[in-house]
């Protein structure tokens, strides 16, 4: 005798039922939890931006953000201006940090103009210009925030990733990698954009030389490192006109 569960009709009904149950469950959860998730992501962005300009709770070796409770207050205090650069026009927009770089990159690919957010922070009388960047690592997206001074010399970075290999590519968010960027230059003396390369053949593992446009790579994380190089070179170059303008005025 054929088992009840082998019938075609039963299979179809079961499949439809399961799709409905699973779909409804996930859709319900996703929409019910969305406000909380968005809020968490918003705070995280503030923490990231603050981290890049050196406002963090770092202790000896680990990278630690300011707490989520303090983040909005500190963000208000230290970030003086939020700018959006679109088509060479600079506008102020205090929601600029919510701009989704991924969507903007997709827009640029479709031939539309890309909005470039830039945050101007001030700490101890020093100005920081913080720009978000985004690219691809080995498995999935990688992104970060780079704080620069008016000469496009790096004053701090924060990198993060969606799914890089733990212990290898994932180490781009470790202090020993991120701290190396401090003081590295993006422009040549003539003002041409050169960017920073994550290099495996770097003869400078402790990164003493700040004028070589190179950072020592993480062993075993070649493709992630190349991704970091590419996103720095591609995304930060878009800000060059702004900095040139800043200097000329």
């Amino acid at each position: 005798m054929e088992k009840r569960t082998d019938k075609n009709s039963y299979t179809v009904i079961f499949a439809i039922g399961m799709v409905l149950v699973v779909g409804a469950l996930l859709a319900y959860l996703a929409s019910a939890l969305k406000p909380m998730i968005t809020e968490n992501q918003r705070l995280e962005k503030q923490q990231n931006i603050l981290y890049a300009m050196g406002i963090n709770n770092n202790d000896e070796g680990s990278a630690t953000f300011v707490s989520t409770d303090e983040a909005p207050e500190l963000f208000e205090k230290y970030i003086k201006q939020q700018l959006v650069i679109e088509n060479g026009e600079v506008k102020e927009d205090n929601k600029a940090y919510l701009i989704d770089v991924k969507k903007e990159q997709a827009r640029a690919k479709n031939g539309k103009t890309r909005r470039l957010p830039l945050f101007v922070g001030e700490k101890d009388g020093k100005k920081f210009y913080i720009a978000p960047i985004r690219g691809k690592g080995l498995w999935d997206a990688i992104w970060g925030y780079v704080a620069m001074d008016e000469n496009m010399t790096v004053q701090g970075v924060y990198f993060d990733h969606k799914g890089e290999t733990p212990g290898l590519g994932a180490n781009i968010k470790q202090r020993y990698f991120m701290d190396d960027f401090y003081g590295e230059r993006l422009l040549t003396d003539a003002g041409v954009f050169k960017g920073i390369t994550i290099s495996k053949s770097n003869a400078d593992p402790t990164n003493e030389d700040k004028n070589d446009y190179e950072i020592d790579a993480i062993a075993g994380a070649t493709i992630t490192g190349d991704g970091v190089t590419a996103m720095i070179k591609k995304d930060l170059k878009l800000y060059l006109p702004y900095f040139q303008n800043l200097k000329n005025n």
């Binding site: 082998d6 299979t11 996930l26 959860l29 939890l33 909380m36």
Partner: peptide, 29 residues
């Protein structure tokens, strides 16, 4: 006892994926 044998692999995959996604969403929130 209720999984149709013809599509059992799909069902199994979906059960894992659903479980993992639910946990992921709840943790994110």
């Amino acid at each position: 006892n209720i999984i149709p044998s013809k599509i059992r692999i799909i069902v199994q995959l979906i059960v894992v994926a659903t479980l993992v996604i639910i946990v992921d969403l709840v943790l994110k929130a």
